[in-house]
Design a protein around this nucleic acid. Structure first.
Lengths: 191, 191, 191, 191
DNA sequence: CATGAATGAGCCTTCATTCAT
DNA sequence: TATGAATGAAGGCTCATTCAT
């Protein structure tokens, strides 16, 4: 069937682009190389994406939307505040490790000029690690009373560093190390 | 003496490369554009650097060496531990802001394939934010008893995020905000 | 019947091709663009025409044949020579203006490499502005005694220029201006 | 010497471009083909011209300026009006034949979208076949009292047609044929 | 040391055309 | 007949690098 074939191919393009960006960054994405890796013709790439920029921005948009949706889904559990935020922390560590290429792609895009061209609607709904959550924590007097943006940035930075340390084998993906790193993050933001 | 003229020109090359990398990343460094910006011929660039890779790696090496030297110089003051570490923190915040292009260059290089080609000796002597210092803090029982690498990474991540927040105007370069952000870092590592 | 649908589509192809050639020349005719303009699939174009060359040559052939037929039809009125030739002149001015896209297409084809591939039979029966007519004029001693080809070329050039001046709004499509321009043509060929 | 070499190469580019446009039109000008014809690298073309459009527009500008200068120079002889205009006529016939490729290039450019990008100053000073001259002729009551633009267009059309007939071997470049064709033009405009 | 000129190696993109359904 | 998908071939352009002066 044609439909299946299409989606398979599109996914292959996305997958391989992610791989290349992970290994060599955006500059490393050559349309010809990408096509060869997938086993299709260069022109075929242009059937799916208008041009290289469109390719990258489309993938970025897709990933960010997916990430956004996921992050909002992850804040459902009904737990005491600290445990709740830890659950999210653990969730994101695992997700980042398991989807390191996607996360890497998003991270790179955010620092690149491509990001300006991601639809504004998508950019706005991005990485809500927990605006509502921080609000709650502040109300309960559990975390420092500073802007959500700063809380989020700080936790995000520690989280990303944790992931990098795990990837670089300086930390392990076990309870002890995860707990340790969470203590860094929690101690940083708690009041 | 010819030497003087040379050094001026070499500095101009470094300066302009820093500017371009800051604005457009490594991919934005075109030998022709760079030369035009400086007001010299493209060929002249090749008198000073063997090729583009050499240009970037040489600059990176120079900057990293300078940074390393500076960081070791900064740990001289004789103060109680927390104040000492805060002094370093403040020093580095200021330095990073005042030398944002240099810092940006180093940051970018570390994430790029170029970094593998920076002389190993230089890579090893890098950013010693305070190995000795952390050792001291742990001995006094003031900070978490974990590897220096993790302490350094965590503080480094928070520091970098702080700098970014300042650059993005989300934070100001005043005592209040600096103190606030230091509290994040200190709380994270203190035992 | 299927036939009706076909003819409609074929006419749409011709019409839109004429439009594009009028606006952007042959190089502006992209099979994909043309198809989209019509609202059909690119592949469908290939059902009607073997390839792009065939498309253009077929349209050219069709238009030239139609024009040829028309020109011979136009020399029927029974009038004194000068009036007869003026009638034809006026007829062609009007026709050229009203069918500027068709005329433009023919003009362009004649100057393009495509023209060599128009069936010879068609090329030969072309724009007979009045071979017989010129013969008559010469017999009556009213026009210069030179080859029909030269007479026709000259009148044709002035006619085309007249049409262009009208299109460029340098002349109007009224009796005065038409008469004026006819006087140029007539004075040129009269003996 | 470097200077000489440059000019030689630039002239070769112009010459070969003229040839190609004469044979195949603008669409026939492929940077690779052009370079190979000249015996230089494609990149070298880009040393002399920013891109293909710049190549064509620069050549057009150069040719039009030269033509304009020439045409104004040609109206110097002190002769009775009809002889004067004939002298110019003969001059232009000869020039057009001898420089058919240049003339062809200019003609083509004027009908192409490139023409809009020729510097306005150049476009304005173009083909002054004889505005002043026509003014004189009208004052002396020798030619039709219509706008110079129309007189010029008409004569221009007949002149161009004459050149085409000569190129197509339908006319010869001898006194008899030139005189004949001038009579068409003169009779057309004379009062 | 300084540079103008020249170039090869790529890269992105377009487009007419084919083919299986 | 109608078409969505795929592609080969080609063309324009960029850019790091070399070389003779």
């Amino acid at each position: 069937m044609v439909r299946v074939k299409d989606e398979t191919k599109r996914l292959a393009i996305v997958e391989n682009t992610l791989d290349i960006v992970f290994e060599k960054g955006f500059a490393g994405v050559k349309m010809a190389t990408l096509a060869k890796k997938i086993g299709i013709s260069v022109s075929t790439l242009y059937v799916y994406y208008k041009n290289k920029e469109d390719l990258i921005i489309s993938i970025a948009t897709e990933l960010i939307e997916r990430e956004t949706k996921r992050s909002s889904n992850s804040i459902t559990a009904d737990l005491p505040f600290k445990l709740k935020i830890k659950a999210i922390w653990v969730y994101w560590i695992n997700f980042s490790i398991n989807h390191s290429k996607e996360m890497n792609f998003i991270t790179q895009v955010k620092k690149s000029p491509y990001y300006d061209k991601v639809p504004e609607a998508v950019r706005e709904t991005k990485s809500r690690l927990g605006t509502d959550l921080f609000e709650l924590g502040k109300k309960e007097g559990l975390i420092k009373n500073v802007s959500n943006e700063i809380l989020e940035s700080t936790m995000g930075a520690i989280l990303l560093e944790t992931v990098n340390l795990i990837i670089d084998k300086k930390l392990k993906l076990n309870k002890k190390d995860i707990d340790l790193m969470f203590s860094f993050a929690w101690d940083a933001i708690k009041s």
